[in-house]
Amino acid sequence: MSALKRKRGGKGPGRNTKKVKLLENGTKPETTEMGQNKEITVPAPVSMGKWKNKERVLVFSSRGINFRTRHLMQDLRTMMPHTKADTKMDRKDKLFVINEVCEIKNCNKCIFFEAKKKQDLYMWVANVPHGPSAKFLVQNIHTLAELKMTGNCLKGSRPLLSFDPQFDKEPHYALLKELFIQIFSTPQYHPRSQPFVDHVFTFTITDNRIWFRNYQIIEEDASMVEIGPRFVLNLIKIFQGSFGGPTLYENPFFESPNMHRRLIRMSTASKLKEKQMIKDLQKLKKTDNKEEVSRDVTDDVFVTPADDKPVHVELEAPTVKVMKKNKHKVFKRQRNLLRL
C-alpha cells in the first residue's frame, strides 16, 4: 500500500501524460473527466510536485482517556493528514516503548496523550529517535464536535502556523516552536493532503501557557472563523531524549494538578477549622459570663444599713365583719314559688 502511494507521489510532472493533461486544463480536473467518461469519479487529491518531506506523526494515547481526549485525538488526526494511529498503550508499559512503536510505524514524530487518574491529561510531544521531547499538561479542551465553532476546512489541507513573538525570545520556547513546526506542518505534496491553504494554527503564549487555536481563512482580507479544536498546553518539562533523558528545562510556574487540588482542599479545611475554633471560643466566653453573674463582686454596693423596725405581734384575732349575703334571695324564691 505504502509503496503504491509512494509511486503515485513520485510521479513527476513529465512522466504521466494523462495526469499532466488534466492539470493543464487548470483547476477543474474533475469536470473534464466527468465530461469525458459520463460517470462520477472521485479523483485523488491533486499533487503536482514531488513529496519530499517524509514527516510522519504518530498520534495515540494511553489507556484510560476520557471521551473528550479521544475526540481531540481524532480531530488532530483529521486536521493533520500526515499522522498515523496506533492502538492505545497499556498503562503498565514504560514510556520508552513508544520509541519502538514509532519505529515500527515508520514515524519520526510523536504526539502521545497520557491520562492519569481519569481526570488529568498529559501530552507528550517528541522527535522520536533522538529527542528532544516535551511534556505538557493539557487544559481547557474544546473539540471539533462542539457547535460553537462554526468554521470548516478541507480535510487534509495544509495549515499556516502562526507563532507569538515570545517564542523567539526564550530558548525553551524556541525549541518548542521548532518541534511544533515539524509536527504540525503538513508536508507539501503529501498524497493525502489538499493543495490549498485554508486554515491557520495559532500558538500564543499567555499566562505561561501555550494556547492553540485553529481558524478558517474565509476571505483574502483575513476574515476568519474558528474551526477548532482548541486547547491550552501547560509546559512541565523538556527532555533531551525522546520520552526520557536528562531534563533540559523545567517550568517553574507549573503546579501539578494533584498539588493544586491538595491546596484547595487544605484551604477549605483550614477555613472550616477556623470557623470551628471561633465557635468554640464564643461558647467558652458565654459560659464564663454566666459564672460571673452568679457571684457578682459589685453586689454589695446595694447593701445599705437600715434601722430595724420594731416587731409587732398581733395577739388578738381581728374582729369579724358580719355581712348579710343575698339580700334579695328570699324574695326571689317566693316569686318562684308563686309562679309555680
Binding site: 519530499k52 533522538h130 495544509r158 499556516l160 502562526s162 530558548p171 525549541l175 516552536k177 521548532e178 506542518s185
Partner: peptide, 24 residues
C-alpha cells in the same frame, strides 16, 4: 543544552513552503 539540542534537530534544509511558519 536547549540551544545545542535545537541546533541538532533543526532542519534548515527545508524551504519555507514545507513549513509555512510565521512569527508575528
Amino acid at each position: 543544552g536547549l540551544k545545542q539540542c535545537l541546533a541538532d534537530f533543526r532542519k534548515n534544509t527545508l524551504p519555507w513552503v514545507e513549513r509555512l511558519d510565521l512569527v508575528n
